[in-house]
Amino acid sequence: MTDTHVPEEETRPEQPGRRSFLSSASTFLMFGGLAAGYGACAGVAGRFLYPAKPREKAWQFVVQIKKMKVGEALTYQIPGGEGVTVARQGSGETEADFIALSSTCPHLGCQVKWEARNNRFFCPCHNGVFDPSGKGVSGPPGDAEQSLPAYPLKAVNGLLFIEVPMDNFQVDAGSTLKSQTRRT
């Protein structure tokens, strides 16, 4: 709205005829300096408002491997969050013999169910169907070629661990008493 006015404003010294290179260069430099300083400051403010940390993840214990038979599945609940279907698919004792799939349908966020007799995951909201590997085969997820998100698993000394986000309901390790003494 004022583009015609701004340069005029800035270069309206007493004698307009002496509008020189020096003047426009200094104006340019001034705006450059201001933009750099305040721009960086705005960036800091923006970073301050953006959630402090990226989603932290951690390996959490799920189950002793020998407690699950091949073909069995259990629901692991992420602390304070959604359920994850952990199924044993092989007889070995490595993470490759297990699969951990989010039970949240990628379509609109309903909870899917494992239907053992049909060997599939089924989402009751819009009849979405996923195969045992979590790949969408029919219904909206099938059409959109969506899969159930898989969580990384790790087998250590006969124990199965899952890597899950920790930003829900997380608390500082160690006692509150301890953390207070640490601060003072």
Binding site: S26, T27, L29, M30, G32, G33, L34, A35, A36, G37, Y38, A40, C41
Partner: peptide, 12 residues
């Protein structure tokens, strides 16, 4: 204006 430019840079 030059001074302001320099100060802006110093702020940065």
């Amino acid at each position: 204006k030059f001074i302001i430019a320099v100060l802006g840079a110093a702020f940065l």
